[in-house]
């Protein structure tokens, strides 16, 4: 049917690879496969453990259902019990922690952000700020929380400190990137009026990054709210403690209720945060 003379053409073709050559590609794939296989081997997960657990799932769901929010109906009236007030009280604490930690954390992070902007800070200061960012990003806020809880016996205050300490790694890092992108000519214009460094930052820098700053603050609050719900697991305040206790004392129906409330609050927080950020930008 075809008149194209094709027999004289090569009958082999292999896909070009993004690696240097096919052997490098195979080596990389092999290395990744071996690495994953080694991980699986090193984790030593036994089949019995898996089997045992799958049997437990049924039990756990049974024990969690129905969740007990501490609300009951008696004589046509809603009666709230001890469990209900516990959830409300601890959830308010969680919310308060997230708000205080956001405000303090942002205040602490602002100077770090300026110091971490290549175009605004002198070299040595820049490196110090980058080190602060790297360390606060790498050490999980829960680790900071547990250190404060056991080191000083703080409750919710330890949680707030933990969240504050984790803020520069997020807030200062992202804000510094925006600071590096600002329009230099406007800064020069303000410098030309004889303004000092603080004046330059207040009148030249802040107006350019203010919407972004507000957006990041709201975003950080969302993250802090999520984190506040679990800090209690290590004793650093908030509803996490209630969840932990419920599970440890086999009150699974109460635990399920707390869990559902946490999910609801986190989802609402995310919706509020993304709505507010949309309004700012």
């Amino acid at each position: 049917m075809s008149t194209l003379e094709y027999e004289e053409y090569s009958s082999e073709w292999t896909r070009p690879t993004v690696f240097y050559n096919r052997w490098v590609k195979r080596l990389v794939y092999l290395a990744v496969a071996v690495f994953i296989a080694w991980n699986v081997w090193a984790a030593r997960i036994s089949a019995e453990r898996l089997q045992y657990g799958i049997g437990q799932v049924d039990f756990l769901f049974g024990a969690m259902w129905p969740p007990d929010f501490g609300i009951s109906v008696s004589g046509g009236e809603l009666v709230t019990g001890r469990r209900f007030s516990r959830i409300v009280e601890k959830m308010l604490e969680t919310l308060a922690m997230s708000i205080v930690a956001t405000v303090v954390g942002v205040l602490v992070s602002l100077p770090v952000a300026v110091m971490a902007a290549e175009n605004l800070a002198p070299r040595p200061v820049y490196y110090v700020a980058r080190a602060i960012i790297t360390v606060t990003r790498s050490i999980h806020e829960l680790i900071v929380g547990i250190v404060f809880v056991i080191g000083f016996g703080f409750g919710a205050f330890a949680g707030v400190l933990a969240l504050v300490s984790a803020t520069p790694g997020f807030f200062a890092k992202l804000l510094a990137e925006d600071l590096e992108d600002i329009d230099q000519s406007r800064l020069d214009a303000i410098r030309a009026t004889g303004a000092g460094p603080l004046g330059v930052i207040l009148y030249g820098v802040v107006p350019q990054v203010l919407p972004r700053m507000i957006g990041l603050t709201i975003y950080r609050w969302d993250i802090n709210l999520r984190a506040s719900t679990i800090l209690g697991i290590v004793g650093a305040g908030g509803i996490g403690a209630t969840l932990n206790t419920a599970f440890n004392t086999y009150e699974y129906d109460f635990g399920a209720a707390v869990l559902l409330v946490i999910i609801a609050v986190v989802v609402v927080g995310e919706v509020v945060s993304s709505w507010a950020r949309g309004r700012v930008q």
């Binding site: 094709y6 027999e7 053409y9 090569s10 082999e12 896909r15």
Partner: peptide
């Protein structure tokens, strides 16, 4: 990407 050799020859052509 293992196509029959005739397909590859035709593709080249």
């Amino acid at each position: 990407r293992k196509f029959p050799s005739e397909d590859i020859q035709r593709a080249y052509a």
